[in-house]
Design a binder for these strands. Structure first.
Length: 271
DNA sequence: CTTCGATCCTGAAGGC
DNA sequence: TGCCTTCAGGATCGAA
Protein backbone atom coordinates (compact mmCIF):
# COMPACT_ATOMS: atom_id res chain seq x y z
CA UNK A 1 0.00 0.00 0.00
CA UNK A 2 2.14 2.85 1.14
CA UNK A 3 5.28 3.94 -0.62
CA UNK A 4 7.61 6.79 0.23
CA UNK A 5 5.13 9.64 -0.44
CA UNK A 6 2.41 8.02 1.65
CA UNK A 7 4.77 7.22 4.54
CA UNK A 8 6.23 10.74 4.38
CA UNK A 9 2.70 12.19 4.47
CA UNK A 10 1.79 10.11 7.51
CA UNK A 11 5.09 11.05 9.15
CA UNK A 12 4.51 14.79 8.69
CA UNK A 13 0.90 14.47 9.78
CA UNK A 14 1.82 12.66 12.98
CA UNK A 15 4.66 15.07 13.71
CA UNK A 16 2.16 17.92 13.61
CA UNK A 17 -0.62 16.11 15.43
CA UNK A 18 1.26 14.59 18.34
CA UNK A 19 1.32 17.30 21.01
CA UNK A 20 4.86 18.07 22.12
CA UNK A 21 4.36 17.65 25.83
CA UNK A 22 1.85 14.93 25.79
CA UNK A 23 2.51 11.96 27.97
CA UNK A 24 1.44 8.49 26.99
CA UNK A 25 -1.19 7.50 29.53
CA UNK A 26 -1.41 3.89 28.47
CA UNK A 27 -1.00 1.55 25.53
CA UNK A 28 -3.45 -1.14 24.57
CA UNK A 29 -2.40 -4.12 22.47
CA UNK A 30 -5.49 -5.64 20.90
CA UNK A 31 -3.65 -8.15 18.75
CA UNK A 32 0.09 -8.87 18.80
CA UNK A 33 0.54 -11.30 15.90
CA UNK A 34 1.62 -9.07 13.05
CA UNK A 35 4.40 -10.07 10.61
CA UNK A 36 6.60 -9.97 13.70
CA UNK A 37 4.78 -10.18 17.06
CA UNK A 38 4.47 -6.85 18.85
CA UNK A 39 6.65 -7.03 21.97
CA UNK A 40 4.45 -7.64 24.99
CA UNK A 41 6.54 -5.16 27.00
CA UNK A 42 5.61 -2.30 24.63
CA UNK A 43 2.92 -0.85 26.93
CA UNK A 44 5.25 -0.71 29.93
CA UNK A 45 8.09 0.75 27.86
CA UNK A 46 5.85 3.57 26.60
CA UNK A 47 4.03 4.28 29.83
CA UNK A 48 4.56 7.90 30.93
CA UNK A 49 6.83 8.65 27.95
CA UNK A 50 6.58 11.45 25.43
CA UNK A 51 6.96 10.99 21.68
CA UNK A 52 9.74 13.47 20.95
CA UNK A 53 9.92 13.15 17.21
CA UNK A 54 8.53 11.17 14.29
CA UNK A 55 10.97 10.40 11.50
CA UNK A 56 10.93 8.39 8.27
CA UNK A 57 13.61 6.06 6.95
CA UNK A 58 12.64 4.32 3.71
CA UNK A 59 9.07 3.11 4.22
CA UNK A 60 9.58 2.88 7.98
CA UNK A 61 8.21 5.35 10.51
CA UNK A 62 10.43 5.97 13.53
CA UNK A 63 8.87 7.29 16.74
CA UNK A 64 11.53 8.54 19.15
CA UNK A 65 10.83 8.35 22.85
CA UNK A 66 13.50 8.75 25.52
CA UNK A 67 16.29 6.23 24.82
CA UNK A 68 14.00 4.11 22.63
CA UNK A 69 12.59 4.20 19.11
CA UNK A 70 9.49 2.51 17.77
CA UNK A 71 10.10 1.18 14.26
CA UNK A 72 6.85 0.79 12.33
CA UNK A 73 6.08 -0.33 8.80
CA UNK A 74 2.64 -0.08 7.22
CA UNK A 75 2.99 -3.16 5.02
CA UNK A 76 0.22 -3.24 2.42
CA UNK A 77 -2.76 -2.11 4.47
CA UNK A 78 -1.47 -0.44 7.62
CA UNK A 79 -2.26 3.03 8.91
CA UNK A 80 -1.56 5.21 11.94
CA UNK A 81 -4.26 7.71 12.71
CA UNK A 82 -6.02 9.40 15.56
CA UNK A 83 -9.23 7.67 16.47
CA UNK A 84 -12.20 9.93 16.01
CA UNK A 85 -15.05 7.81 17.26
CA UNK A 86 -15.41 4.07 17.48
CA UNK A 87 -12.86 1.36 17.61
CA UNK A 88 -12.54 -0.44 14.32
CA UNK A 89 -12.02 -4.02 13.34
CA UNK A 90 -8.29 -4.63 12.74
CA UNK A 91 -7.14 -1.92 15.12
CA UNK A 92 -4.19 -3.71 16.74
CA UNK A 93 -2.63 -1.08 18.97
CA UNK A 94 -3.94 2.04 20.71
CA UNK A 95 -1.67 4.69 22.21
CA UNK A 96 -3.67 6.80 24.67
CA UNK A 97 -2.28 10.26 25.43
CA UNK A 98 -2.92 12.15 28.64
CA UNK A 99 -5.10 14.69 26.83
CA UNK A 100 -7.46 11.92 25.73
CA UNK A 101 -6.27 11.60 22.13
CA UNK A 102 -5.86 8.05 20.92
CA UNK A 103 -3.43 7.05 18.18
CA UNK A 104 -4.47 3.79 16.49
CA UNK A 105 -2.55 1.32 14.36
CA UNK A 106 -4.97 -0.31 11.92
CA UNK A 107 -3.87 -3.12 9.60
CA UNK A 108 -6.30 -5.69 8.14
CA UNK A 109 -3.67 -7.80 6.42
CA UNK A 110 -1.20 -7.65 9.31
CA UNK A 111 1.85 -7.34 7.06
CA UNK A 112 2.83 -4.29 9.07
CA UNK A 113 5.41 -4.00 11.82
CA UNK A 114 5.70 -2.40 15.24
CA UNK A 115 8.91 -3.03 17.13
CA UNK A 116 10.75 -1.02 19.75
CA UNK A 117 14.56 -0.83 20.07
CA UNK A 118 17.11 1.35 21.86
CA UNK A 119 17.52 4.50 19.76
CA UNK A 120 21.25 3.86 19.42
CA UNK A 121 20.50 0.46 17.82
CA UNK A 122 18.10 1.64 15.10
CA UNK A 123 20.71 1.49 12.36
CA UNK A 124 21.81 -1.98 13.44
CA UNK A 125 18.25 -3.30 13.35
CA UNK A 126 17.68 -6.16 10.91
CA UNK A 127 14.93 -4.26 9.09
CA UNK A 128 16.94 -1.06 8.75
CA UNK A 129 20.55 -2.05 8.25
CA UNK A 130 20.29 -3.37 4.68
CA UNK A 131 18.40 -0.38 3.31
CA UNK A 132 19.86 1.50 0.34
CA UNK A 133 20.00 5.23 -0.33
CA UNK A 134 17.14 7.68 0.04
CA UNK A 135 15.95 8.74 -3.44
CA UNK A 136 15.52 12.39 -2.40
CA UNK A 137 19.07 12.70 -1.09
CA UNK A 138 22.36 13.44 -2.81
CA UNK A 139 23.76 9.90 -2.73
CA UNK A 140 21.06 8.81 -5.19
CA UNK A 141 23.15 9.77 -8.22
CA UNK A 142 24.40 8.46 -11.57
CA UNK A 143 27.68 7.07 -10.30
CA UNK A 144 25.93 5.11 -7.56
CA UNK A 145 23.37 3.67 -9.98
CA UNK A 146 25.91 2.79 -12.66
CA UNK A 147 27.96 0.96 -10.07
CA UNK A 148 24.98 -0.92 -8.58
CA UNK A 149 23.57 -1.76 -12.02
CA UNK A 150 26.76 -3.41 -13.23
CA UNK A 151 26.05 -6.95 -14.43
CA UNK A 152 22.44 -6.94 -13.20
CA UNK A 153 20.04 -8.75 -15.54
CA UNK A 154 16.85 -8.05 -13.57
CA UNK A 155 14.28 -5.73 -15.14
CA UNK A 156 14.99 -2.11 -14.27
CA UNK A 157 11.59 -1.88 -12.56
CA UNK A 158 12.62 -4.59 -10.08
CA UNK A 159 15.92 -2.80 -9.54
CA UNK A 160 14.13 0.43 -8.64
CA UNK A 161 11.87 -1.44 -6.23
CA UNK A 162 14.82 -3.20 -4.55
CA UNK A 163 15.06 -1.57 -1.13
CA UNK A 164 18.72 -2.59 -0.83
CA UNK A 165 19.46 -0.30 -3.78
CA UNK A 166 17.13 2.65 -3.29
CA UNK A 167 14.36 2.89 -0.73
CA UNK A 168 10.75 4.00 -0.83
CA UNK A 169 9.83 3.13 -4.42
CA UNK A 170 7.04 0.55 -4.69
CA UNK A 171 4.79 -0.78 -7.40
CA UNK A 172 2.90 2.41 -8.26
CA UNK A 173 5.80 4.84 -8.34
CA UNK A 174 8.13 2.42 -10.17
CA UNK A 175 5.77 2.42 -13.17
CA UNK A 176 5.24 6.18 -12.91
CA UNK A 177 8.94 7.00 -12.67
CA UNK A 178 9.82 4.84 -15.68
CA UNK A 179 6.99 6.39 -17.68
CA UNK A 180 8.31 9.89 -17.07
CA UNK A 181 11.89 8.75 -17.70
CA UNK A 182 10.87 7.21 -21.04
CA UNK A 183 12.33 3.81 -20.12
CA UNK A 184 10.47 0.50 -20.46
CA UNK A 185 10.12 -1.38 -17.17
CA UNK A 186 11.28 -4.72 -18.62
CA UNK A 187 14.66 -3.42 -19.80
CA UNK A 188 17.61 -5.27 -18.27
CA UNK A 189 19.19 -3.06 -15.63
CA UNK A 190 22.69 -3.42 -17.06
CA UNK A 191 21.52 -2.12 -20.43
CA UNK A 192 20.47 1.29 -19.06
CA UNK A 193 22.77 4.03 -20.36
CA UNK A 194 24.11 6.94 -18.36
CA UNK A 195 21.74 9.40 -20.03
CA UNK A 196 18.81 7.17 -19.13
CA UNK A 197 19.90 6.98 -15.50
CA UNK A 198 19.94 10.77 -15.46
CA UNK A 199 16.36 10.80 -16.69
CA UNK A 200 15.37 8.12 -14.16
CA UNK A 201 16.87 10.14 -11.32
CA UNK A 202 15.15 13.33 -12.34
CA UNK A 203 11.82 11.55 -12.89
CA UNK A 204 12.15 9.92 -9.45
CA UNK A 205 12.69 13.25 -7.71
CA UNK A 206 9.86 14.94 -9.59
CA UNK A 207 7.32 12.15 -9.19
CA UNK A 208 8.02 11.57 -5.49
CA UNK A 209 8.02 15.27 -4.61
CA UNK A 210 4.82 15.88 -6.52
CA UNK A 211 3.19 12.89 -4.83
CA UNK A 212 4.26 14.17 -1.40
CA UNK A 213 2.78 17.58 -2.27
CA UNK A 214 -0.46 15.83 -3.17
CA UNK A 215 -0.36 13.81 0.08
CA UNK A 216 0.05 10.44 -1.60
CA UNK A 217 -2.02 8.16 -3.82
CA UNK A 218 -5.27 6.65 -2.55
CA UNK A 219 -6.44 3.66 -4.59
CA UNK A 220 -8.32 1.87 -1.86
CA UNK A 221 -7.42 1.97 1.81
CA UNK A 222 -4.49 4.38 2.16
CA UNK A 223 -5.31 7.36 4.32
CA UNK A 224 -3.36 10.19 5.92
CA UNK A 225 -3.08 10.30 9.70
CA UNK A 226 -6.01 12.72 9.57
CA UNK A 227 -8.13 10.09 7.83
CA UNK A 228 -8.23 12.02 4.54
CA UNK A 229 -7.34 10.48 1.19
CA UNK A 230 -4.35 11.39 -0.92
CA UNK A 231 -4.79 13.14 -4.28
CA UNK A 232 -2.00 11.91 -6.53
CA UNK A 233 -4.16 9.20 -8.15
CA UNK A 234 -5.49 11.70 -10.70
CA UNK A 235 -1.92 12.42 -11.78
CA UNK A 236 -1.00 8.85 -12.64
CA UNK A 237 0.17 8.42 -16.23
CA UNK A 238 0.75 4.67 -16.26
CA UNK A 239 -0.22 2.78 -13.10
CA UNK A 240 -3.66 1.19 -13.31
CA UNK A 241 -4.35 2.68 -16.77
CA UNK A 242 -4.22 -0.63 -18.63
CA UNK A 243 -6.07 -0.28 -21.96
CA UNK A 244 -6.64 3.45 -21.52
CA UNK A 245 -5.02 6.06 -23.75
CA UNK A 246 -1.59 7.44 -22.89
CA UNK A 247 -2.04 11.02 -21.62
CA UNK A 248 0.94 12.05 -23.75
CA UNK A 249 0.63 10.25 -27.10
CA UNK A 250 -2.80 8.56 -27.05
CA UNK A 251 -1.30 5.14 -27.58
CA UNK A 252 -2.82 2.34 -25.48
CA UNK A 253 -1.16 1.72 -22.12
CA UNK A 254 0.21 -1.82 -21.85
CA UNK A 255 0.36 -4.03 -18.81
CA UNK A 256 2.03 -7.25 -17.76
CA UNK A 257 2.59 -9.21 -14.59
CA UNK A 258 6.26 -8.91 -13.66
CA UNK A 259 7.49 -10.86 -10.62
CA UNK A 260 3.90 -11.06 -9.49
CA UNK A 261 3.28 -7.31 -9.68
CA UNK A 262 1.20 -5.49 -12.27
CA UNK A 263 3.39 -3.31 -14.45
CA UNK A 264 2.24 -0.55 -16.80
CA UNK A 265 3.91 1.36 -19.61
CA UNK A 266 3.43 3.12 -22.95
CA UNK A 267 5.43 1.44 -25.70
CA UNK A 268 5.39 4.65 -27.72
CA UNK A 269 6.71 6.98 -25.01
CA UNK A 270 9.03 4.44 -23.39
CA UNK A 271 11.97 2.72 -25.11
C1' DC B 1 26.77 -13.84 -4.74
C1' DT B 2 21.93 -13.14 -7.71
C1' DT B 3 17.36 -14.29 -9.00
C1' DC B 4 12.85 -16.36 -8.62
C1' DG B 5 8.71 -17.97 -6.50
C1' DA B 6 6.01 -19.02 -2.57
C1' DT B 7 4.29 -17.11 1.48
C1' DC B 8 2.20 -14.35 5.18
C1' DC B 9 -3.26 -12.17 5.70
C1' DT B 10 -7.94 -10.04 4.87
C1' DG B 11 -11.25 -8.06 1.88
C1' DA B 12 -13.11 -6.34 -2.43
C1' DA B 13 -14.52 -7.27 -6.96
C1' DG B 14 -15.90 -10.00 -10.74
C1' DG B 15 -17.45 -14.35 -13.08
C1' DC B 16 -20.73 -18.00 -13.09
C1' DT C 1 -28.07 -15.13 -3.19
C1' DG C 2 -23.50 -17.65 -2.85
C1' DC C 3 -19.25 -19.74 -4.09
C1' DC C 4 -14.85 -19.46 -6.27
C1' DT C 5 -10.91 -17.11 -8.20
C1' DT C 6 -7.96 -13.24 -8.62
C1' DC C 7 -5.84 -9.28 -7.14
C1' DA C 8 -4.10 -5.56 -3.86
C1' DG C 9 0.70 0.86 -2.22
C1' DG C 10 5.29 -5.12 0.78
C1' DA C 11 9.09 -7.74 2.24
C1' DT C 12 11.12 -12.05 3.80
C1' DC C 13 12.78 -16.56 3.24
C1' DG C 14 14.48 -20.59 1.05
C1' DA C 15 15.68 -22.92 -3.11
C1' DA C 16 18.03 -23.02 -7.48
Amino acid sequence: MPELPEVETVCQGLRDAIPANNKIAFVQLKRRDLRVPIQKELPQWLLGQTIRNVRRRAKYLLFDIAEKTIISHLGMSGSWRFLDNDHRKHDHCYIHFSDGKVLAFHDPRRFGLITCVPTSDVNKNKFIKHLGVEPLEQDFNVNYLLQKAKGKIVPVKNFLMDQKIVVGIGNIYASEILFHAGVRPLRKTKSIKQGEWIKIISATVQVLNKAIQRKGTTLRDYEQSSGESGHFQSELFAYGRDGERCKTCHNKIQSKMLSGRSTYWCSQCQK
